[in-house]
Amino acid sequence: MTRCVWCTRTFEPPVTLQDLLRWRPLPVPALCSSCQERFTPITGAHCPACGRQQATTIRCHDCERWGTETLTNHALFQYDAGMKAYMQQYKFQGDYALRKALQAPLYRALARQTYDVLVPIPVDQHTWLTRGFNQVTGWLRDQPFQQVLRVKADHKSQPQSAKTRAERLVTPQPFMLDAAAAKIIANRRVLLLDDVYTTGRTLRHAANQIYLGGAKAVTSLTLAR
């Protein structure tokens, strides 16, 4: 009997011949099919820079506005009502069990990326104390990652999601590098991992810090765009 982590109803997990004929445990999906459908995967044409779903494959308007401050981001799902509801329950209501819902797609997406070091975006001290977990590392199963970024102690703890676009864009650099960071990221390809790409401000701040640490290349992956 399998129970959906989101709606908590039992469901019959779909089984395929491949799963049965492989020498592996049967996959246990975390979501029932109707909860799965609340997420809209980004497929087909998307912005090459930020990963947003669109009809063409040229850089989107928002990316153009960033000018030369480029960053290549990939995203898994569209940031629509379903994803918002999920983030609300997972992040803000702190439903840690929901992390399992997106572990499998993230696992597959990470397997497709080329990188040497995986760096999740950190949460600040206040969030740690209230939420109790980092929503980004929750989605990881056993993939190795390096927590080389830290949130500066003087950083004002107002969540990005509570700001307007203009307010976000003027956010000062919130991150600093860990003392041991240089050894880990020097001359390596770094992949940043975050939950949502909205304006790209946070990821660009993080990327800048990583470059300062001597990384060869920095790209990013987000669950939603």
């Binding site: 009997m1 399998t2 019959e12 997990p13 089984v15 049965l20 049967l26 246990v28």
Partner: peptide, 9 residues
């Protein structure tokens, strides 16, 4: 037992 394990059993 987990779903579909009976089948393989």
């Amino acid at each position: 037992m987990a779903a579909n394990h009976w089948f393989l059993a």
